[in-house]
Design a protein around this nucleic acid. Structure first.
Length: 418
DNA sequence: GCGATCAGCGG
DNA sequence: TGTTCGCTGATCGCG
């Protein structure tokens, strides 16, 4: 029986105290939906389409012939055969040479076309996936978009979102971030966004018990700067932007089980330099190194990895004789422990928030979850009060060996609130 | 119409 | 050989 199995795997609490109650919270969020400013998106669409057309024309001229800019196959032919640009910067794919972003960036100094393609790709992505697609998904009865949260598809225990996916709305580029302005509150309300600060690194500090990492978080300083100061043995105020940026990438790379090669690619440094970087990192945080070693040994023995709430991810790869498969499994083991535990944390926070909103009959609506961020709709004038109320509950959802910090904002659209 | 492939968005 | 997870869209070959 399934109940028997759940009991034997010690998953009863997770199922009955977390996942099943959470399904109700998610249902309410889906039914409430979030309001979308369709007129605003139509306006953006006109501008982006105009610019995309210009770029398309220019690309055809640069290529000396017409072709479909959205076809990697045709672009491959133009770049590497017609224009004879070097294939050395491109990795092989099943169908030939890749024309992805990193390749086009490396070709950019040699020809104008790759640059124009890059811009065209950005615009086409925004138009096709968001600006033109989202208005189609507005429910005519509610005037809002209603995502579906998937509770059982992510191997780490995270949620997923679909139809539409509201967990991957652009933010990193200026044009992309504009799209967030289309997500707006009900009349007389504001959007409030509260996100956990560096939650995965804090979870790593907690899980590993590394004294230096814990100390760095307890000091409440910029974690990447204090990490850099430790690795390079300088004072925090002497850390350069480049050093901070490199350390940040290592900090997050460690969470994904990154190795020398991946880091060197990402940072644009040699493999030797990347190796020294990683050695410096683990030298400064020996507890993290010990934790990862133990985690991998344990996961290999048991064939699975667990989060703080006992959520399990089977990892048969770790017992394979294929070295690549084992290494891939090791990356998943580290990522699952950290990301999955962070997912546990925000789920507890959501349950507490929902229960307390109900109990205190507060006029706050939880609308969205984006892994480390919660978005609420609250009445105008209650922004500050709601923020301190929500923040307090998010920051105390679990007790870790480091402080849990959440940053908050509010506004008349999602971009402003962030 | 379906599935494989490539590409790119987020945390 | 070469970062984690998952979702979506366009193209293209197959039927």
């Amino acid at each position: 029986m399934i109940e028997e199995k759940i009991k034997n795997l010690d998953l009863e609490d997770l199922l009955y105290e977390v996942e099943l109650p959470l399904s109700h919270v998610l249902m309410k969020m889906e039914q409430r939906g979030i309001r979308l400013d369709v007129d605003f998106l139509k306006t953006i669409s006109v501008d982006l389409t105009q610019r995309a057309k210009e770029l398309e024309k220019e690309c055809h001229e640069l290529a000396g012939m017409e072709f479909n800019l959205s076809s990697p196959k045709q672009l491959q032919h133009i770049l590497f055969e017609k224009l004879e640009l070097p294939t050395s910067v491109s990795r092989k794919t099943k169908t030939g040479f890749s024309t992805d972003q990193s390749v086009l960036e490396r070709l950019a100094p040699l020809h104008l076309l790759p640059n124009r393609i890059l811009e065209h790709r950005e615009l086409n992505k925004l138009l096709g996936t968001y600006v033109n697609a989202l208005p189609e998904l507005v429910n005519p009865d509610t005037g809002r978009v209603h995502t579906s949260y998937l509770q059982t598809v992510a191997a780490t225990g995270r949620l997923a979102s679909a139809n539409p996916n509201l967990q991957n709305i652009p933010i990193r580029t200026e044009r992309g971030a504009e799209i967030r302005k289309a997500f707006i509150p009900e009349d007389g309300h504001s959007l409030v966004s509260i996100d956990y600060s560096q939650i995965e690194l804090r979870m790593m500090a907690h899980l590993s018990g590394d004294e230096a990492l814990i100390e760095a978080f307890q000091q409440g300083e910029d974690i990447h700067i204090s990490t850099a100061a430790k690795i390079f043995n300088v004072k925090p105020e002497e850390v350069t932007k480049e050093q901070r940026s490199g350390v940040k990438q290592v900090n997050y790379g460690v969470l994904f089980g990154m190795r020398e090669f991946g880091l060197s690619q990402r940072m644009g440094i040699s493999i030797q330099e990347a190796r020294e970087f990683i050695e410096g990192y683990f030298g400064a945080f020996p507890g993290v190194k010990r934790y990862i070693d133990h985690l991998l040994e344990d996961s290999r023995k048991t064939g699975m990895v667990k989060t703080v709430l006992g959520r399990r991810r089977p990892l048969p790869e770790l017992q394979s004789s294929n070295r690549n498969l084992v290494q891939s499994g090791e990356r998943m083991a580290i990522a699952s422990a950290v990301q999955g535990s962070a997912a546990d944390l925000i789920k507890l926070a959501m349950l507490k928030l929902d229960a307390d909103i109900d109990r205190e009959q507060l006029p706050y609506s939880m609308l969205l979850q984006v892994h480390d961020e919660l978005i609420f709709e609250v009445p105008e004038g209650e922004e500050e009060d709601s923020i301190s109320w929500i923040k307090q509950r998010m920051e105390s959802a679990m007790t870790l060996k480091v402080p849990i910090v959440a940053d908050a904002g509010y506004g008349k659209n999602w971009l402003e609130a962030h």
